[in-house]
Design a protein around this nucleic acid. Sequence first.
DNA 1: CCATTTCTTGAACAATCATTCAAGAAATGT
DNA 2: ACATTTCTTGAATGATTGTTCAAGAAATGG
Lengths: 196, 196
Amino acid sequence: MSRAQFDKQQVIDAATGLFWQQGYQAASMQQIVQCTGLKPGSLYLAFGNKQGLFAEAIKAYGANGRAQLQALFASTDSIGRSICEIFSGMISEAISKDYCSCFLVKAQLELATEGNTHAALLQLVQEELAAVEVVYANALSRDFGEQKAQALARSIMLHIFGLRVYGYKHNSAEQLLETLQLGLSWLPWDSIETKH
Amino acid sequence: MSRAQFDKQQVIDAATGLFWQQGYQAASMQQIVQCTGLKPGSLYLAFGNKQGLFAEAIKAYGANGRAQLQALFASTDSIGRSICEIFSGMISEAISKDYCSCFLVKAQLELATEGNTHAALLQLVQEELAAVEVVYANALSRDFGEQKAQALARSIMLHIFGLRVYGYKHNSAEQLLETLQLGLSWLPWDSIETKH
DNA sequence: CCATTTCTTGAACAATCATTCAAGAAATGT
DNA sequence: ACATTTCTTGAATGATTGTTCAAGAAATGG
């Protein structure tokens, strides 16, 4: 017997970066071979095919994001302030030079074609996105009733999606923050103010 | 001499539908040959290459959408109510079976890759999106000061983007409407209420 | 009615795509 | 040390990609 001579998670992370930047279709297996260092045969033995590798990338990205969210909510004494900090981080990403939105958002828009040739992958992506909404709703139910928490979670998701797209326009951080404050006026934005 | 034996606008519209549903990369020239009825040679004589045809599709889509917006704003006596009606229409699209978001939003996310191989097309898409924002800002400046109108236009764009992505989740029309009302509370939603 | 120009045709092109597989290397089980 | 299993290698496969071009058809100009 012989054990795998590469770190599977490392390979998935490298592939995730490529898929994230280029998209599913535009990322070629040749590029993946290059950026992972593996030969085609090893890749196909480990992941089956391109879809299998993409599925692993989506799962890893989703699990990581969800874990970060849950850790943040578990350790904070103010869900609202934590959410403000999350948005603040997203604004920082949006104004950075090599901004490339959110992997799940990009994947959903690319995979949701009429022919539906990637039905399994699309469902996976949508499950990951739905799971994120659940995490927000659960956290908010600490401060609000269940109905209200779910409604607020939907509003948060809408703003995340909006920001993930709007981020490509070269707005200033102040403009983006102001826009979020306008739509999410119930959040305690004062708690993250940096100006004096 | 011989004049073109096909209606160029008709060809662009057919190609737009395909690009919109499938995306730029996934839509193959063979598919375009099929859905337009033209032979490759004619397509390449008329549009140069795939990028040229895509550019025409984006321009046509953008010009059409902008014209509709401007016509609506020119003929209404309430900008706010018209905007509510626009969102109401977007909700209807979102809950329909063959929903495929907004062509410009999808194109922006697909073309904005790190390698930036489609820089010209990306810029075109972003210009179209920026033009939409200007139309909203101009319309709102009828009711608000210029600064406020621009801020509100940014908020509208963020909500449009959010809805264009969130629309893929199978939410009810009521939930989507409620989410928009939460973030755009300054709009006169009462004016489009259908319930009694 | 011929010459010229413009458009159409569709087979063919090179490049790239995802994927395969026989052969060799390496690690384990006994 | 040997047999067995598992992983690696990388050239090769057939399909599909965007694009071209020589030849023919059609319409116009004089």
